[in-house]
Design a protein around this nucleic acid. Structure first.
Length: 394
RNA sequence: GUGGCUGUAGCUUAGCGGCAAAGCACCGCUCUGUGGCAGCGGGGAUCAUGGGUUCGAAUCCCAUCAGCCACC
């Protein structure tokens, strides 16, 4: 992999780049389309390409559980396995371990929103005080056991007792054969105390070294910056991760409750990173978040929103929060195209009335059409941002 | 025609003398390193109709109507 920055904005920290891999080039900034189980849900690989997706991200954890990395390896690697001949990354599985653990214990995502009432909620995993930090150092989630070596857990599919640590994650990712792979990290919950985050960071850093030592392949390996919402921990994490000689970086964990906090967190996380290397933000964003993230110097980011929301009946129309919820019956009588301003095949051919019917009837065709539209919308919206960087307006 | 069973929210049903419930559907809201999952909140009923018994009836009794089943 090779990363070339072809333009740096004078107005912001945004950068225009070309990410070269053995499977082609990605124009950055770019959204990475999520294909967790080697599938862009409801779409074929060709269809994902047809709506402008340049790069996919699949998941180590899911593919290890099913079908198992050897199946993929024997099929000729993940590109051949899923007939995607363009660039592809695999996530390390660290986040999925969090989802199984504290995530499901507390029923939370990786960020806590402003209006969250979690603080008042009794937590299984720690003391509830007046502070937000309900998870203390040394505490462990119920379904997984996190040790210094890695994570013990039982398979949500068949209950098998399993273990994934940094070595295992890298070996699995080598078998899968993506162009870019990620270091195995711990994604601590947003409510964790500073002491817990600091301890978790030590683990992530040690695991990063092991990942680098383990890797034998030519795949690009990205290290992950953690540190939650704490400036000193983010900076410390960035400095250390940068020192290890990764090919690029991921930024993970809690991104705060609003744009300002997200901007701060990105700044702290990237300030001490080699500016010539690519930076991937893990798990963001809504259309409203994207420009901000790009302006803060992020090159790629993956998000389930375009595909996941499509399956829930939501179509995105602009970057200011305008969307259509096709589950609402009022659209049964709406004869307008999905988005009159959009030029994707779905908007050119299908009207809201029909799409609403499909979604309400739980027809996969409805999810399929909305997935096509949403990915087209996100990909072309971001292509527009690349144009703006080129023209110097962002 | 005779006998039996059943009529409770839009649908499927629970409740069988003491504040009318649930699931689905409907309406609203959540769900950023993906179960198509899930969660939260809401509106909804002359308990088939009419009479009776009772302090009190969806519940017991009688009649009527409707549906289903069996038998002449």
């Amino acid at each position: 992999m090779e990363f070339n920055i072809i333009k740096k904005s004078k107005k912001s920290r945004a950068r225009l780049g070309l990410l070269n891999t053995d499977h082609g080039v990605v124009e950055t900034p770019a959204l990475v389309t999520v294909a967790t189980q080697a599938s862009i849900k409801t779409l074929t690989s060709e269809e994902a390409e047809s709506v402008g997706s340049q790069l996919l991200i699949a998941n180590t954890f899911h593919l290890h559980l099913r079908p198992g990395e050897n199946i993929v390896k024997n099929a000729g690697g993940i590109h051949k396995f899923m007939n995607w001949n363009r660039p592809l990354m695999t996530d390390s599985g660290g986040f999925q371990v969090f989802s199984l653990g504290f995530g499901s214990d507390l029923n939370i995502g990786k960020s806590v929103k402003k209006n969250s009432n979690l603080i008042a909620m009794p937590a299984h995993a720690g003391r509830v005080g007046q502070s937000k930090e309900v998870i203390k150092e040394g505490s462990n989630p119920k379904n997984v056991k996190i040790t210094d070596d890695g994570v013990y857990f039982s398979s949500p599919i068949d209950g098998r007792k399993l273990f994934i640590g940094p070595k295992e994650s890298v070996r699995i990712q080598e078998s899968l054969g993506a162009d870019i792979i990620f270091s195995f990290d711990e994604c601590p919950p947003p409510l964790a105390s500073k002491a817990y985050i600091a301890q978790s960071l030590n683990k992530t850093n040690r695991w990063a070294e092991i990942c680098i030592k383990t890797k034998k392949s030519k795949q690009a390996l990205f290290g992950i910056v953690q540190g939650s919402r704490f400036k000193d921990l983010r900076e410390q994490s960035a400095k250390y991760t940068n020192s290890l000689g990764f090919d690029g970086f991921g930024i993970g964990g809690d991104f705060g409750k609003d744009k300002k906090e997200t901007s701060d967190i990105i700044l702290w996380s990237t300030k001490y990173l080699d500016p010539k290397k690519p930076r991937h933000m893990l798990g963001i964003g809504h259309p409203e978040d994207i420009e901000n993230v790009i302006k803060n110097g992020i090159d790629t980011f993956d998000c389930t929103v375009p595909t996941h929301y499509a399956r829930r009946g939501i179509a995105f129309l602009d970057d200011k929060g305008k969307r259509l919820d096709l589950r609402k019956s009022k659209f049964l009588k709406d004869q307008k195209p999905l988005d009159p301003k959009c030029s994707c095949n779905v908007c050119r051919s299908y009207r809201r009335s029909y799409l609403c019917h499909l979604i309400k009837a739980n027809e996969i065709t409805g999810m399929h059409l909305l997935t096509l539209h949403n990915l087209y919308f996100f990909n072309s919206y971001i292509a527009g941002i690349r144009e703006k960087i080129k023209r110097g307006t962002i």
